Simulated scan of single mutants.
Amino acid sequence: MYNGSCLCGAVSFRLQSEPKAVTNCHCRMCQKQHGAAFATYTSVPRADLEYLSGQELLTAYNSSGSIVRKFCSICGSNIEWSGSNEFTDWVSIPLASLDTPFVPKNIKDVHLESGAHYPHANQ
């Protein structure tokens, strides 16, 4: 099992199975939501995500089509996204929200076409 939480600790959860399909998503929505060049997510079956506290504090936002992103209404931490037409019974969790150490075996990069291209400071 893997435990995780938001920045303020009000929302906490447990993954009942080993995370799968670790992905660095470079799409504009993930960039904007995380304020970073990409977001790293891992996925588990929806039934394997158990909220331990603060589930009532989650705010949902429909970012596109059927995709719903949930975040802590106190600190704004991204907690999950789901609603993929291809993986209807799965939920994705930001890898950095895990409090239990997890080292993925493989990380896939997706949506590189919208990836940020920042110059290095010494260029």
Rank of each mutant, 00 (worst) to 15 (best):
V91W: 08
Y41E: 03
H26W: 08
S84D: 07
C6N: 14
R69C: 01
P45E: 11
H120I: 09
C25A: 09
W90K: 07
K105E: 11
A21S: 12
F13E: 01
V44D: 08
D99F: 02
I74L: 14
I67D: 01
N62E: 14
I79F: 00
G65I: 13
C75G: 08
C6F: 13
Y118Q: 06
T42E: 06
N122R: 15
T23S: 09
A36D: 15
A37H: 08
N106M: 08
L49S: 12
T23M: 12
R46K: 12
E86C: 14
Q123A: 11
S64I: 06
Y118L: 09
E113W: 01
E113I: 02
L112D: 03
A96S: 05
N62V: 15
W81R: 03
P94T: 07
P45F: 06
Q33I: 13
H34Y: 04
R69S: 02
S84R: 07
K20W: 01
G76I: 00
Q16G: 10
S12P: 02
A60R: 15
L57Y: 01
S97K: 04
N24V: 00
E50T: 15
P104G: 07
I67F: 04
P101H: 05
E50A: 05
E50W: 10
A121K: 02
L58G: 10
P19W: 00
Q16L: 15
G115M: 01
I74C: 08
L7H: 06
L52A: 02
R46L: 12
S12L: 15
D99W: 00
R14W: 05
A39K: 09
T100V: 02
A121V: 13
A60S: 08
G115Q: 06
E18S: 05
F87S: 14
T23A: 09
A37P: 14
T40V: 06
S84T: 03
C72N: 08
A121S: 15
E86W: 15
H34P: 01
S5Q: 15
A39G: 15
V110L: 13
I107S: 04
G83F: 04
S97Y: 03
G4S: 08
K20E: 12
M1V: 13
A47I: 12
W81H: 13
D109L: 06
V22N: 00
N85K: 11
K70S: 09
R28V: 15
A39T: 04
D99L: 02
V68H: 00
C8Y: 03
E56M: 05
D109P: 05
V103E: 15
S84A: 10
D109H: 10
V68D: 00
S17L: 05
V22I: 11
L52F: 12
S82D: 07
F38P: 05
N78T: 13
L7K: 10
N3C: 08
